[in-house]
Amino acid sequence: MKTQPPRNAGPQNAGDAATRLRRTGDAQPITMVYDVPSLLAPGTTPVSRLYYEDWNIKVVDREKSGCDNYLSPNRRDFYKIMLMTSGTGFKTMGKNNYYIDERTILFLHPNEIVCWRNTTPEVGGGVFCMFKKRYLDQHPSLKLVIDRYKFFTEKKILRLSEQSTRMIHGLLTQMKAEAASGGELAEEAMQAYVQLILVESLKGTEYAPTGAITNEYRHVHDFFELLEKETNLANLDRPIRMRTAQQYAQQLNLNASYLNGLVKKHTGQPISTLIKNRLVEESKALLIQTSWTLQEISQIIGFADQPNFSQFFKNYVGVTPNEFRRSPIAPDYEG
């Protein structure tokens, strides 16, 4: 399938960076995740709490979600289909940048390191569809379509025609109605709608990146990739060993102060905070998804003894590991 660059902008405003990008094709990579005012604290990932909620598939209006600027480096347990019907922004996926506007559909893999920055003050229109990894296991026909046409791997961003945009938006609207109706067959019907969305998306063209990421952002990406690898593979036989900025910088052949400065510039937080946050998130996942003892989990996270781990967890979450394990999605624990 041939690629095509983003369409030319209508207004020719020399002061509009987004317009210049679409006219000239100049690379305008995301170098500051939070250079647009944000309602969320620096480093916040809006979708992170969904990891702990008990759902299989859901549809959300983009306007209602707020669609704030974010950097999402952590492993997620859901796939995300994002239809843009209005608004603009920069999307960084892996090591490529894309200027995104209306009539675009994105397929975000759970393991993808992604970054989004709005380029308009108002929240754009569109719809998100998110479904858990286990949902694919429950619906092999949906998984077959995704694997056959390489959605979420090779097909990540597609430009749609007006007709396809209307049709996909209608399918997502029907999915919301199915979700509201509930019942045993609601999720079965919704996966059929997802298949129709995938087939209709095939009529689109692949979205060409606007340029490669900067060297600065590449270092940030490599840090998060290494952090995710270190925590993602953690288990009883392979506990987490890297817990400091110095250790990560050494693995990346960078000066620790330099790497810390870059990461703080892009996320608003130092490496030490990001590492601690990631250890907390992995601790939550292990508490919810395994039956391992607190002593075993503390060793996996890298603590010498269980009391120190419990104190660390309570300091950041507000409850003990045992309390969290009994009620992991209470709002007070996730706020």
Score class of each variant (00 low, 15 high):
M1R: 14
N8K: 14
Q12M: 07
N13T: 12
D16W: 14
T19Q: 10
R20W: 04
R22V: 08
D26L: 08
D26S: 13
T31G: 11
V33T: 15
L40H: 13
A41S: 12
A41P: 12
G43Q: 11
T44Y: 09
Y52F: 12
D54K: 13
V60L: 14
D61S: 13
E63Y: 01
E63Q: 03
G66H: 09
G66I: 10
G66M: 08
D68M: 09
N69D: 03
Y70Q: 10
R76K: 14
M82Q: 01
M82F: 02
T85P: 05
T92M: 09
M93R: 07
K95W: 00
R103P: 00
F107M: 08
L108Y: 02
N111C: 03
N111V: 01
T119M: 02
E122K: 12
G125S: 04
G126E: 10
F128M: 06
L136E: 05
P140L: 12
P140T: 12
V145A: 12
I146Y: 04
R148E: 07
Y149Q: 09
F151C: 09
L158K: 06
S161H: 07
Q163E: 14
I168H: 08
L172F: 13
A177D: 10
A180V: 02
S181V: 08
A186D: 06
E188P: 00
A189H: 07
A192V: 15
Y193R: 11
Q195L: 07
S201T: 03
P209Q: 08
P209T: 12
A212L: 05
H221I: 11
F224N: 03
L226A: 15
L233Q: 14
L236R: 13
L236W: 00
T244M: 01
Q250H: 11
S257Y: 06
L259C: 05
G261E: 02
H266C: 15
G268S: 05
P270L: 10
S283W: 06
S283D: 12
K284R: 07
A285I: 01
A285D: 02
I288C: 10
I297K: 08
N315Q: 06
Y316R: 14
V319M: 09
T320Q: 07
R326S: 14
S327C: 04
I329D: 10
E334F: 04
